[in-house]
């Protein structure tokens, strides 16, 4: 198991290396520079700025500087490998690390809240549907599920604002910080995923409760509640766990949309404006960071597997 984890972690190195090269090339291939303005700055100033940030260097040197393999114009190793994501060209008083520190927690909180809602609603709905198969409850939860899959956050967001903020006045229209401001965005983002989880839980639960070991558990006189929680649910959760990794990734990137709708000061706004502003370090840093999240989330899921199902073994 330990060897497996180490191997997976080592595999991250070429993956992230590749992603950084592709992202760097793509970001720099977008025409224009970070100091292009509608009213152009004097050429000398642009030249000085480019020199200061090392943008006059050949592209490969800029890349190695960014990664931290070579000394930057200031003569020091200050790249991603040293934990420094560089300066932000458009908000010049702050580094990319500052931006991460201020705005990443917001996005992460939103993503996690949505995930909590997805699991917290999806699993019970799925279990209920499976245990009461072909009854009203089954149809109701599956109707909720198909609604959740079909109505994307971009529709749910404005709809929530219209109903719960403007008509019923339960929650504030937008913003972030107070718990009441977090309810609508988290639900808007998490509902779709909860639908996917509900459908998957139902399917896998239906399969598991027909297994022999469930009959055995009942036969030895366990209470129904015990059978469901200890034996059925634990095994039914395995397929659900497999999609939690990709789902978390989707939710984390989904925060971008949600943040736009509810005016939440997360990473979304920074990433989108940084692309149009050619703010390369912000673009690169965000993509790399999210890629690390993604790879780690998938690893955690694979490890969780092994705990849930002892039959799964990694060598």
């Amino acid at each position: 198991m330990a060897r497996y984890i180490v191997r997976r972690l080592l595999w991250m190195i070429p993956v992230l290396f590749f992603i950084s090269i592709v992202t760097f090339a793509l970001a720099h291939a977008v025409p224009g520079g970070p100091f292009d303005r509608e009213k152009p700055l004097p050429a000398e100033i642009v030249a000085n700025l480019n020199k200061y940030y090392g943008l006059d260097q050949p592209l490969w040197k800029q890349y190695t500087d960014y990664i931290g393999l070579t000394r930057n114009p200031a003569g020091e190793f200050a790249g991603v490998l040293e934990g420094k994501f560089g300066p932000s060209y458009s908000s010049r008083s702050r580094t990319v690390n500052d931006i991460f520190r201020d705005h990443l927690p917001v996005s992460a909180t939103l993503g996690l809240a949505a995930l909590a809602i997805a699991v917290g609603m999806g699993v019970p709905l799925g279990v209920l549907a499976a245990l009461k198969q072909n009854t009203f409850w089954d149809y109701l939860s599956m109707a909720v599920a198909i609604f959740g899959v079909s109505v994307p956050v971009i529709v749910l967001g404005p709809l929530f604002i219209l109903i719960f903020a403007l008509t019923l006045h339960w929650f504030p229209v937008a913003g972030w910080g107070r718990p009441s401001q977090m309810v609508m965005p988290s639900f808007a983002l998490g509902l779709g995923s909860s639908a996917i989880i509900a459908r998957l839980t139902r399917a896998s639960m239906l399969q598991v409760i027909r297994e022999d070991y469930i009959r055995t558990a009942r036969a030895k006189g366990l209470s129904e509640r015990m059978v469901i929680i200890r034996h059925a649910l634990k095994n039914a959760f395995i397929p659900v766990a497999t999609i939690l990794g990709p789902m978390f990734a989707a939710l984390v990137t989904g925060t971008f949309v949600t943040e736009q709708i509810f005016a939440i000061p997360g990473m979304g706004k920074y990433f989108i404006t940084s692309i149009t502003n050619r703010d390369y370090p912000v673009v690169m840093g965000t993509i790399l960071l999210y890629a690390v999240f993604l790879v780690l989330a998938n690893l955690v899921v694979d490890i969780t597997y092994a705990f849930l199902d002892p039959r799964i073994q990694y060598e």
Binding site: W11, P14, F18, T253, I287, F293, L294, V295
Partner: peptide, 14 residues
């Protein structure tokens, strides 16, 4: 595997 490690939405935006 490598393509999967890209944050899809961010890559599409770029």
């Amino acid at each position: 595997d490598i393509m999967y490690a890209f944050p899809t939405m961010l890559l599409i935006i770029l």
